[in-house]
């Protein structure tokens, strides 16, 4: 719905697990005040910009559309797919999988976040434009470009 899934869908199957780990690398871990941290311009955004509020006109319209299309007779989808094993990252497997994902997607995290920041300001204007949409709000990025 935000920059986070946008990154995931853009990078292919393996990158959702990758993204999930990188979020920890960036945001958690030991901080020692005697050391300097490299400039993370565009990265600090993570905490703020992903908190895009669900409550927007855009979301409402999307939900309304989805409800219209929903086949109530079919019942809820019982199996949301096999467990997301592909996305899992283990100590032993981290290396190989990371490399695969690397060559698969050249876009850097910082670029993605920068983009998110640039778009942050226009979020509201976009939201007030009534328009039917099947895609998640994350597609907004592509549409604007």
């Amino acid at each position: 719905m935000t920059v986070v899934p946008a990154q995931q869908t853009g990078g292919g199957g393996g990158s959702s697990g990758l993204y999930d780990v990188l979020e920890l690398v960036l945001d958690r871990g030991l901080v020692i005040d005697a050391f300097v941290r490299v400039s993370l311009v565009g990265i600090e955004i993570l905490k703020i910009d992903v908190r895009v509020v669900v409550a927007s006109v855009d979301t409402y319209l999307r939900f309304a559309e989805a409800c219209n299309r929903l086949d109530l007779e079919a019942g809820p989808r019982k199996d949301p797919g096999l467990p997301d094993l592909v996305g899992e990252m283990t100590e032993s497997g981290a290396r190989g999988k990371s490399k695969g994902a690397l060559s698969g997607a050249a876009e850097t995290i910082s670029d993605a976040f920068k983009q998110a920041r640039d778009e942050g300001g226009s979020e509201r204007e976009t939201s007030s434009r009534p328009r039917a949409r099947k895609a998640a709000p994350s597609r907004r990025k592509e549409e604007q470009e």
Binding site: L18, L40, G42
Partner: peptide, 13 residues
Amino acid sequence: LRPKRRELLAHQN
């Protein structure tokens, strides 16, 4: 050094 995907991965690896 920039917080690029490659660098974050190197750190994690």
